[in-house]
Design a protein around this nucleic acid. Structure first.
Lengths: 222, 222
DNA sequence: TAAGTTAAGCTTACACTGTAAGTCTAGTCG
DNA sequence: CGACTAGACTTACAGTGTAAGCTTAACTTA
């Protein structure tokens, strides 16, 4: 008696690294990176978990893959334009991409990223700064300063526990845990938000411009 | 027949929230936050995992607790001194504390922190800026800009995969994956590091000074 | 003193996780 | 035809947080 275990439809479409990464990216975008498990990912691809390991060496490799996919969405600075404009565009694009993939910033800053998209992204950034008259060393410092802002700002923004529009309303509930006699300045800030005198929204460009303006004097003419 | 299960020595010292948080902090410092499990923590306290739940509502509560302990180590800015000096000291202290607890920065930026140490820390920061002549709104922006740098810089620093002293030596191994025809500028930077023309070490104060200098013009006289 | 209550430890169990190890099956090649 | 291989699979293990309920000793009150 023939032992037929499966009808001969292993997957509708054959598995591939690309298909796996694509599905993983979607899963992470939907439910955050902590809800991206090998079993759930496999299920989404109509496959069993261990089959994924034919295309991905382990979960770290998978995460490296989707992080690099995210990085590749960032608009890379061109060498042609004014360096401040180019850096502003780069930062704005990165910020937008990171907001589209709310799990990604944490992943980026907590792992070593040497995917080809990341290398290209960094190279173009350094190149733009070098061509603008920064030394090798200063270009590295400038790049670091800008990225600190991008990652730091985005993480704090994503971590903010309510929507900007509801901030004013929600702030009122928190007021009781910020008594004026213990936290006078924080209490004052909260009052300003409640009363609509300040919307409490942080501006990505504010810190960015501080850095870009400050960097200009470190160029030396070519 | 009396049913004696345990010799009457449940723990050598009675459990307490403080003792649990203290042990948890040590465990996290030693092995990172991912190696801090309720079972390991309990074992370290000569107790079983579920006993911890008499003092801690769940693991999130535990993490909130140790994060706030870390925050409490940061030197809070005084209202008396020059605002730039005070902010510089605050940032430097925060940076040092975060390096002492390498897991902490990620924990801070990935959860909502409303422990008393955090509230006090934020209040003192806002106060210093307000007294220096920043408006409520500007103080909030300034605080945010500075913290973006602190968290962004520290995360990138902690994520850097080798020690500063070995950087030059290790860079040589990576050179082959950064071919000059694909990544000319990154390749050049790497060469500078290998040849000792640049140590490749990022400076916490560099970005910080950019921000502090830029902020000054946003004060308005009292 | 007896009874009742509570605090603070405990065991067990469940639904998850990543992945090592080994197995089955269909297809290709010599 | 026989061997090999690619690509799916099953099973199993050691770990996770924590819900549910049990045990025992100490304290409180009648």
């Amino acid at each position: 008696m023939a032992k037929i275990r499966n009808p001969p439809t292993p997957p509708p479409v054959p598995l591939s690294r690309e298909r796996i990464l694509h599905a993983a990216l979607h899963l992470a975008d939907e439910g955050g990176i902590e809800s991206l498990s090998m079993r759930k990912l496999a299920q989404k691809l109509s496959v069993k978990a261990m089959s994924l390991y034919n295309y991905v060496t382990n979960k770290d490799d998978l995460l490296d893959g989707i992080v690099d996919k995210v990085i590749s969405e960032i608009e890379v600075p061109s060498l042609a334009t004014d360096w401040q404009l180019a850096m502003r565009q780069r930062a704005t694009s990165a910020h937008a991409v990171l907001l589209r993939h709310p799990w990604a910033t944490m992943a980026i800053v907590s792992r070593v990223n040497v995917g080809s998209a990341m290398l290209h992204y960094v190279d173009a950034t350094l190149g733009c700064l070098r061509e603008a008259g920064f030394s090798v060393e200063m270009a590295d410092h400038a790049w670091n300063a800008i990225d600190n802002h991008i990652y730091g700002f985005t993480l704090q923004e994503l971590n903010f526990p309510f929507e900007a529009t509801e901030y004013s309303a929600v702030a009122e509930n928190y007021l009781s845990s910020i008594p004026v006699e213990h936290y006078p300045y924080l209490n004052q800030l909260t009052h300003h938000v409640i009363e609509g005198r300040y919307d409490g929204i942080h501006d990505f460009e504010f810190g960015l411009e501080l850095i870009l303006s400050g960097l200009d004097r470190f160029r030396h003419p070519t």
